[in-house]
Write a protein that binds this DNA or RNA. Structure first.
Lengths: 228, 228
DNA sequence: GCAAATTAATGATTTATTCAAG
DNA sequence: CTTGAATAAATCATTAATTTGC
């Protein structure tokens, strides 16, 4: 009975979940997750939670709800599809490899490869960082421009979603989709994330920072987990 | 005097360094760093070493040489330019901010912002990981395909380039341009980097891994710092 | 540049398989 | 051996991206 909490009780056909967060009308629309929601989902998946329990699903849903309407079912489906498609890619890759070892080059292309993805190209994609307070409330995000997408890794990593609420005195940080936990309090953003870090509030506003990348004014929403 | 070893004795104009690693001919061509070399340089810069000493420069040059011809001068110039351009961006940003606070939105767009950069878009850029052995020799790189560029953060971080050679029993890892150090030995790549991680040798070949993302065969070049 | 047409991604459903309890 | 829960695999359907013709 070690598998206690697992089991959604409605895996397959009949949807016993609430239909959809949207209340707009009878036209059944499917959930379109926000980029940040996907960021979180990917984070969780990549931190090892590939098949969350019912409880974990609810926790994740609550987390995602900070960013927009979403139901447990959406979260459940997302992980189901993510697992499935991850496995399929894995199989296809494996197949193409045994078929012809030289096909590896092709497979590499699929993955983006070392070449195009990193720097030297002029594409200026940004690292994404989301900062949350102790209760996993969404606070704001950090976007760093520059030649390449790279970040410093904060200290501790939380690989357990169910612990999202715990660890008082720390903030949970998503960096490029990876869950991290750092001690709360003022931080030198530039030291942590590089020279040209930007603080972007979830509203889209840029937050003014001083020469260390430290917030000049305190935050409006949530409790101030980040500098005062 | 905490700034002991600093000072190149030729910071500005005259290049006292050896001209250029290339020996192709009299047509003086400028150094075109490989993507991986830029990855390393950005890593180092972002880990805080924005103005390496002469010794550090040489260390970095030796490191970069694993990937292609490069001289101390190239490294020196790169950091000089990097600092300069970082400062300029910083000024421009600051200027646009004081000019009109609402210009922040624009500045965010420049940085890529939360929206476009992450998942949901079809662009499949990959996370870059480079693994090195104890003597900072380049071994191979890891490229991860998938929806977004995100990685797990290994345990310890080396923020000091001059320590690249030290720390026996560990491997230095670049993840998305961030220097990391992890204890050497076999590792569960999938556990560390997610489900669909690929091992890509610097030659471009895909390296066969087992279901845990662990190398099936030992590496050819360098000493085996990663599984046997 | 714009908007219809096409294609690619991906959320949601359905069907098949696995495995443990009785 | 049967049953039911839980997943995995396959499929359907809608949304977002991209292309194409004006």
């Amino acid at each position: 009975m070690e598998d206690s909490n697992r089991g959604h009780s409605n895996s397959s056909s009949l949807q016993r979940f609430a239909p959809n967060g949207n209340v707009t009308g009878p036209v059944r629309t499917r959930w379109t997750p926000k980029a940040e929601q996907i960021l979180i989902l990917e984070s969780i998946f990549n931190s090892g939670v590939v098949n969350p329990t019912k409880d974990e699903t609810a926790t994740i849903r609550r987390l995602l709800e900070q960013l927009g309407p979403v139901g447990d079912a959406n979260v459940f489906y997302w992980f189901q599809n993510r697992r499935s498609r991850s496995r399929r890619r894995q199989r296809q890759l494996q197949a193409s490899l045994v078929a012809d070892p030289r096909a590896a080059g092709v497979a590499q292309q699929v993955g983006g490869g070392v070449q195009s993805s990193s720097a030297s190209s002029s594409s200026s994609s940004a690292a994404n960082v989301m900062l949350m307070d102790d209760s996993a409330q969404y606070l704001f995000s950090v976007s760093r421009m520059g030649l390449m997408e790279s970040t410093q890794s904060p200290v501790v990593r939380s690989s357990d979603v169910s612990q999202l609420h715990h660890q008082p005195g720390t903030v949970t940080v998503f960096i490029d989709g990876v869950l991290n936990e750092v001690p709360s309090g003022p931080k030198d953003l530039r030291a942590m994330f590089g020279q040209d870090v930007l603080l972007v509030h979830s509203s889209g506003e840029l937050l003014p920072v001083n020469e260390h990348g430290i917030l000049v004014q305190s935050l409006q929403m949530g409790r101030k987990a980040y500098l005062e």
